[in-house]
Amino acid sequence: MPEPIADVLTTQASVRPRILVSCSLSGPANDAWLIEDLTDYADNVGQELRAQGADFELLDVGAAASWEMDAATGLQGFDGLLVLGGGDIHPSLYGQRPIAAPGYGVDERVDQAEIALVRSAAASGLPVMGICRGMQVINVAFGGTLIQDLGPASIHQVHTEAPGMSDHEVVIGPDTLLASALGAGSTMVRSGHHQAVQDLGAGLLATAEAPDGVIEAIEHEDHWVLGVQWHPEDPDTTFGQLAALMRTFTDQCRKGQPPAAHPDGQTLSA
Results as ranks from 00 to 15, higher is better:
I5D: 12
V8H: 08
T10L: 15
A13C: 09
S14T: 12
S24H: 07
I35E: 14
A42Q: 00
D43P: 02
L49M: 01
L59A: 13
D60I: 05
W67I: 14
L82T: 00
V83R: 01
L84S: 08
L84G: 10
G87S: 01
H90M: 06
S92A: 15
L93P: 08
G95I: 10
A100V: 09
A100Q: 11
G103H: 12
D107T: 02
R109W: 06
A122E: 03
A123C: 04
C132K: 01
I138R: 03
F142N: 06
L146E: 05
I147D: 13
Q148R: 05
D149I: 07
A153W: 12
S154Q: 12
I155H: 14
H159K: 09
I172Y: 05
A184Y: 08
G185W: 02
T187C: 11
S191E: 01
S191I: 06
Q195R: 00
D199V: 12
G203M: 08
A206D: 11
A208K: 06
G213C: 10
G213T: 09
I215F: 04
A217K: 07
A217H: 02
A217D: 04
E219A: 06
E221H: 07
H231S: 01
G240Q: 05
A243V: 01
A244H: 04
C253T: 03
K255A: 15
K255Y: 13
G256C: 05
P259F: 09
